[in-house]
Design a protein around this nucleic acid. Structure first.
Lengths: 193, 193
DNA sequence: AGAACAGGATACCGATCGGTGTCATCTCGG
DNA sequence: CCGAGATGACACCGATCGGTATCCTGTTCT
């Protein structure tokens, strides 16, 4: 992908282009399985530019995951705000992931996948995956508190389990139907809470 | 690990020793991140013996995962049989995984991890992971039918979601408490079913 | 116009990868 | 006691890895 004239010599655009290309190729083929050369080719950038911007492959991976978790969080915050108050806001999260499962090339949560590839190590991927899980826990806990659930913390942890279970199974089975199944579980858990 | 005199020149024992060592090192460090040399060193075997027995690294990975899924299935079948009939048999599955989460060096489900590392590919790891999920679905469906649940298939799929969600979160967070949390969710779902 | 800089292309480095070949050693059946 | 098979130790292969250096083009600013 050659650089268009208009966006040339814009360091921020170059960095964003590399991030986007790296995110896509990491998602599709895995992080360990993807070489820097592939990222460079997919981004239409040279290895030099990648290393100038991110220092190392680990630095690139951390930047990709950080960018990814921030985008996902923003999507969820926005979806929640647009939903009617109460239980609908919680279900909006699962409607959002249901549409995510249905996207072509869906391969699961980037942070969980990276932490899984890196298992045994205590590097940035695992830390970012834990932070990502904490985001979901805190989001659910806030929404559950607003709806007046008696034990928001426990129920929030339950919803994260359902969310991540549906995500990993949807990725392995390539089955977008897990979104609807997760929603049913969530309604049951909310009824019981 | 040098070979003990008694087990020398026993091809089956050698093969089993390689499988066990490979399973451990793959689990702890990841499959892509582990070279054949590491497996050979961990097994006290030579690369020649590994390739004589398994043909290729992919063949070794497939053999390790096949062995693993069979062992896990046997553990679950046994745990279920030893539990009292009815709901206890379903909960026995989650008690078993709870003790699994508490093991030192727990890193999640080998099949799901391998499929995640291999994402985008349609090789043996993903197929074995799908088969592993099917095993859980079929097991739960059988037990739910025995307890007289009205829609065993749907509830079985729900239980698999909870099981895999708890597993992946327990692995990422290194938190064995997910076993108890999963059990609570299961009881709620069984009450509602 | 010219300095400064971003960036693409390419070659290169040492290390490691999956995989093969060679050879000595060990055990065991005959 | 000897040959066959299994195994470990080790050297080696081409490919690819992460990472660096070189060279040149094209843009932007002064």
């Amino acid at each position: 992908m050659p650089v268009k004239a208009g966006e040339r010599l814009d360091p921020e655009a170059t960095r964003a282009r590399i991030l986007k290309a790296a995110s896509e190729v990491f998602t599709q083929r895995g992080i360990h399985a993807t070489g820097i050369n592939e990222v460079a080719e997919a981004a239409g950038a040279s290895k030099l530019t990648i290393y100038k911007n991110f220092g190392s492959k680990d630095g690139l991976v951390e930047a990709v995951l950080t960018d990814r978790t921030q985008r996902v969080r923003a999507w969820h915050e926005q979806a929640v705000e647009q939903a009617a108050a109460g239980r609908e806001r919680i279900l909006a999260v699962f409607d959002l992931v249901a549409s995510w499962y249905a996207e072509a090339g869906f391969r699961g949560c980037a942070m969980i996948n990276a932490a899984t590839e890196d298992r045994g190590q205590d590097g940035a991927p695992r830390r970012l995956a834990q932070d990502h899980l904490s985001f979901y826990r805190n989001l659910f806990q806030r929404l559950l508190t607003e709806t007046g659930v008696c034990d928001p913390e426990t129920t929030a942890r339950q919803l994260v389990i359902v969310l991540e279970g549906a995500t990993i199974i949807s990725a392995v089975d390539r089955d977008p139907g897990l979104g609807a199944e997760a929603r049913v579980i969530v309604e049951t858990l909310l009824d019981a809470a």
